[in-house]
Simulated assay, not measured.
Amino acid sequence: MNILQRIVERKKLRITEQKKVLSFEDIKKKALAFGNKSDYLFYKKIKRLPHEPIKLIAEIKKASPLKGILKEYDIEEMANIYVSSGADAISVITEEDFFLGNPQFLVTIKKNHPHIPVLRKDFIFDEYQVYESKLLHSDAILLIASILTKEQCKTLYELTKSLGMDVLFEIHDEEDLDKSLFAGADIIGINNRNLKTLQIDINTTFKLKKLIPEGKVIVSESGISGKSHVQELIKQGVDAILVGTSIVLSDNPAEKIKELKFS
């Protein structure tokens, strides 16, 4: 069993336990009655117009399966730095067991910064998690195509949009791309990291970008650490970058954000 399968299996166990505390019917009812209007803010903020700087989604990331704990830091303080330094959106990893995330991180950050979109980055495959994301004040959620069937992609995408949230569809190969297009994705994130081997190759973005129809918002994820990467991505017509590790591990996260965003 590879790391991706282990994460998904652990997440299934967590959801099973959550449903014993709050049933599917109850969380659905709560979400449908929830007054917060995301209004597709994430899409609006990360779509890059001609001649604009690349859009930056800065990530709150405590740990990874590969590197363990990255750095001890205060979540609220780091989010303040992200916003004041010009990040266009904040990605929040909420997976608890392998990334040491916490769903409440989302709530806290959105409460402090209501005008910046927050992305829930987790391993989502159940409608329960979509309704939960709405209650956590998410503006968008991540859907990882490789852990979903084509039908699941479409069902979860349509449910998420019906609740006023956006979807960042994460792909790594042509099969994933086919799933995202079948679902109707308007934001496609190309992950340069192979989630099965954890190897990174930024050429993945360049290869798959050529196959994506015009009119989609394109996000490049993983392995982006400096100006040369960003400049090449801009040339290729990428709208946004999602960066976590290189910002978190930087001695000066504010300067790192400015370096990446205004390359």
Rank of each mutant, 00 (worst) to 15 (best):
Q104K: 13
R193H: 09
I224S: 01
F206G: 02
I93Q: 04
E255V: 06
K258G: 06
I190S: 00
K62H: 11
K235E: 14
V230H: 07
Y73G: 05
Y128I: 10
E127M: 10
K29G: 01
K150R: 13
H137K: 15
K67F: 08
E96C: 02
L136Y: 11
L211A: 15
K62I: 15
I75E: 00
L181K: 00
Y73C: 02
G244L: 06
L181H: 00
E9R: 13
L168A: 04
D74C: 04
I27Y: 05
Q236G: 03
E158V: 09
Q152S: 05
L208C: 10
Y131S: 11
S222G: 04
I116F: 04
L181Q: 03
I81F: 02
C153F: 11
V243F: 07
K45S: 14
K258L: 08
K207V: 14
K20Q: 15
L260T: 03
P213G: 01
L159R: 07
F24G: 08
V8T: 12
K44Y: 01
S162F: 05
L56M: 12
S133Q: 01
E77G: 08
K209N: 13
F206N: 00
Q5S: 15
K154S: 13
L163R: 11
A58M: 03
E72N: 13
V130K: 01
L22P: 02
Q231L: 15
L66K: 15
I247A: 09
D122I: 08
N80W: 08
N203V: 03
I141T: 02
V219G: 02
F169V: 01
